[in-house]
């Protein structure tokens, strides 16, 4: 039986994920139950959305470091609009958040695609600029739960359906649907394949008539819009939004993307892997707090080493597999 490298990677990731959960189950009493899923799935939903957006950008050989600031900004501005107009139809609000996020993303995309500026510089700058827009417009005041409509603050804990004691929150369902749509789009549609083409060989993509500028612009808009949707969920989950909202999410998203097997130099990757990567990072992050052998202060050290191990193992494995493949071809 022949398994493609991509499928193999997903299987390995799932194995690592299962091993991690089993490991914590053997260490922590009463770990493996429905409450674990209910608790973790909400935060995975938010990170997965951001990570999928980041994956679109990374596929095209770029990076979006401004994403944490975009989440903070959209959460704040959406909250502010809702406080001014509490009667806004609920269905419109997430769309509004995606629009706000999309505008931030479009600004990044415009600078990167139109002027051909390196994305790491542009988004490093907009990381600071968007955050300062947030600070400036908030004037030090923050969004608080009491001043938001009740439907919004209860939305994060509302279930779409439940299987036994496993509660499927709406935000989890939305997030999974987004991942699946992104997966189908990237693997089955011509417009989706173009993201890979540009990332794996920009010159060849240009000769094939692919508009690189437009595709890269689109990647940043998608990244911004998904960060906007994540900002909406963030607002709904936490209610209280201060100027530091979403700080550091860019690192988690890049971490999830890299652990999920997307090549940081573009051209290859799978958003299903990114979803597993996001879940893996979040499970480790939340479970270490409950593990008695180590203090909660070990979280960052373990997370960093995990990312490094994942990438190192991946590099070694892929190199060996590719070598075997080319050796086999020569015989």
């Amino acid at each position: 039986m022949r398994i493609s490298l991509g499928t193999l990677r997903i299987i390995v990731l799932l194995g690592v994920f299962a091993a991690t959960v089993l490991f914590f189950a053997s260490q922590i009493d009463g770990y493996l139950n429905a409450r674990l899923f209910n608790r973790i799935s909400g935060s995975v939903a938010v990170i997965a959305l951001i990570a999928v957006g980041q994956a679109f950008v990374v596929l095209t050989r770029n990076i979006d470091l401004s994403i944490g600031s975009v989440v903070g900004c959209t959460a704040y501005f959406t909250g502010g609009i809702l406080m001014a107009y509490p009667d806004l139809p609920p269905l419109l609000v997430p769309l509004l958040a995606m629009l706000i996020g999309g505008i931030f993303g479009a600004l990044n995309g415009f600078l990167v695609a139109r002027f051909r500026l390196p994305s790491i510089i542009v988004t490093l700058a907009t990381l600071a600029i968007f955050r300062s827009i947030l600070v400036q417009s908030s004037d030090g005041s923050s969004i608080t739960t009491e001043r938001l409509p009740v439907w919004l603050t209860s939305f994060a804990t509302q279930n779409a359906f439940s299987i036994g004691e496993l509660q499927m929150r709406w935000i989890v369902v939305i997030s999974v649907v987004v991942v699946l749509v992104a997966h189908v789009f990237l693997t089955r549609f011509r417009a989706g394949r173009q993201f890979f083409a540009i990332g794996s060989n920009p010159d060849a993509a240009a000769f094939a008539g692919i508009n690189a500028g437009r595709t890269i612009f689109l990647a940043f808009v998608i990244s911004g819009a998904l960060a906007g949707l994540a900002g909406f969920m963030f607002l709904s989950r936490f209610g209280n939004i201060t100027v530091v909202a979403g700080l550091g999410l860019e690192l988690k998203s890049v971490g999830a993307v890299v652990v999920g097997g997307v090549n940081i130099f573009g051209g290859s990757g799978n958003v299903l892997g990114v979803l597993i990567g996001a879940a893996l990072i979040d499970v480790i992050d939340t479970s270490l707090v409950r593990w008695e052998l180590v203090s909660e202060f070990w979280r960052e050290a373990v997370l960093g080493l995990l990312i490094l191990t994942a990438v190192a193992a991946d590099t070694v494995l892929m190199r060996r597999l590719l070598k075997r493949k080319t050796d086999g071809g020569q015989q």
């Binding site: 990076i63 790491i120 690192l251 890049v254 971490g255 890299v258 940081i264 130099f265 203090s295 202060f297 070990w298 979280r299 960052e300 050290a301 373990v302 997370l303 960093g304 080493l305 990312i307 490094l308 990438v311 190192a312 590099t315 070694v316």
Partner: peptide
């Protein structure tokens, strides 16, 4: 020696070294 991009390696060690400091 592994040939992993410095962007990825130092992103990971940025988190890890900070983690050691916190430990």
């Amino acid at each position: 020696w592994f040939g992993i991009p410095s962007l990825v390696v130092t992103l990971a060690t940025m988190i890890a070294f900070r983690g050691f400091a916190r430990i």
